[in-house]
Amino acid sequence: MPDSTPTHAQAAMAPQAGWQSLVADWSSDQRAFKSASWGKAMMWIFLLSDTFIFGCFLLAYMTVRMSTTVPWPNPSEVFALEIAGTNLPLILIAIMTFVLISSSGTMAMAVNYGYRRDRVKTAVLMLVTAAFGATFVGMQAFEWSKLIHEGVRPWENPLGAPQFGAAFFMITGFHGTHVTIGVIFLLIIARKVWRGDFDQERRGFFTSRKGRYEVVEIMGLYWHFVDLVWVFIFALFYLW
């Protein structure tokens, strides 16, 4: 009945919008987030907790940057590369950031194809994402070795405050670990997608539960989060 005005009953059944629907969901039974599966809800809450970890790390970095009396090295000089005779400040980090942001793009596409149950494209895009991630970690390793070569250590720093090296290695290391873990899981899930585990409802080795394509999206949540954190590290460490 496309033309008829909604009856009272229909109006009551119609999905509510905005705050009302929020209140309705939370005062309902069974689930507070109606559209989120268990796995997704869990990932969101985990990311919230992880946000606090990174938040504490970054606040700690700012605090020691203020507490030390030795001058802080100038990031655009420290993170400059000599390429073909020209001195390019922050060039490596710009490329790294670009790579990581691009990987978020391919991840988003993988999620999209995952929902269309396009096995091959999903798996390939996840592999590309993983490759971007691995490139990022590789470039970070290069940057670490360059700094180490210049004498920067967690405990000392010929360029200025020792807290610079300490905070740099700790925070980028912690973030790099996140990326590395992400790459590992991307590979594992890409393999499952490729093999068709989610189409055949094959059971997981450890959990003995059937996986679903949704895992791709949950993986995506994590990956975008790691990306977002990088933006903050980039802004607070390299640009400040």
């Binding site: 309902s28 039974d29 069974q30 689930r31 268990w38 809800a41």
Partner: peptide, 13 residues
């Protein structure tokens, strides 16, 4: 997540 998402029918918060 169990409290938020896995309650029985009729079990509102």
């Amino acid at each position: 997540v169990t409290v938020l998402q896995a309650r029985a029918r009729g079990m509102t918060l």
